[in-house]
Write a protein that binds this DNA or RNA. Structure first.
Lengths: 154, 154
DNA sequence: TATTGTTATACTCTATAACTATA
DNA sequence: TATAGTTATAGAGTATAACAATA
């Protein structure tokens, strides 16, 4: 049966918020680091982009600078991230994970993954493969903000 | 290749927040109704479950009653939902969409679906079918709060 | 003047705890 | 006493607008 983009969008719009709510709830309920999903995403980004600026984080996470500033502020206060002015351009910030930040990220990742894995055990292996395949299909078309913007236009 | 629950969880944790951010952003940017994702979900639920109680909504959306109460309150204030005591059991509420509520929901749905569909057009039909299948697999294992709770235990 | 980031302000989402009204 | 909802309170996420500091 042919699946129209619209039908597909319908399913995605129905199910993705549902899964997201679980991720959020489980991550929140994990007492130790008590990281929220957006905070977690900042840590993951910094783990892969050590020394990124606030604008880098905002851009890659699709947030505004003020929102990002507030969130980073919280992470700094909690000792998970360091924030220092760039020596060459003192307007810019150099953000990096502390070792606690690294640990908190790993811990949250593991905990949340375990919770999800527990649910995903309900599926037979072949169906898990379908889910993985779908995620791999969705990833490239949802990265980096705008739909109509291609690399060549950048 | 066998996919472990853990690998599958990894992919889901990576991609779902990505898709969700797009949904959120696009829904927010749709000026007219200006519905948020959670509000939208309440309207969708009420469209399919006319006369549902507040607990019904809370249960099916996986929210606590106070959160739901606040959100419904906002929707009532904006004229999108009616809230009346049930005549048989006056503790219960009877919630329903107004015609504006219906219109706002349809409008938001159409707008957001169009945005998603635009991105999903990038996939060939067979891959869209994979995505739909994955959503259908995920739905039942992420509905209604707890992972380990089955109907028989309820 | 343009860029980077922050502060001020304001909403919404969401939870827990304590409460009211009805059964 | 148990159930349905609400109110109070609190913290996070997010945005826009206005601002400060640096280039």
């Amino acid at each position: 049966m042919p699946i129209s983009p619209d039908e597909c969008a319908h399913e995605v719009l129905d199910v993705v918020p549902l899964v997201m709510r679980t991720i959020r709830t489980e991550m929140r309920s994990h007492r130790a680091p008590g990281l929220t999903v957006p905070q977690f995403r900042v840590l993951v980004f910094l783990a892969r982009n050590d020394g990124a600026s606030l604008s880098d984080v905002a851009g890659h996470l699709g947030l505004t600078p003020p929102s990002t500033s507030v969130m980073v502020d919280g992470l700094v206060t909690r000792g998970l991230v360091t924030r220092r002015p760039d020596s060459r351009d003192r307007r810019r910030l150099t953000l990096a994970l502390t070792s606690e930040g690294h640990a908190a990220m790993e811990s949250a990742r593991k905990f949340t993954r375990d919770c999800l894995a527990e649910r995903l055990e309900a599926l037979p292996e072949s169906e898990r493969a379908t889910v993985v395949r779908a995620m791999q299909l969705l990833r490239p078309i949802f990265v980096s903000g705008k739909a109509e913007e291609t690399d060549s236009e950048k």
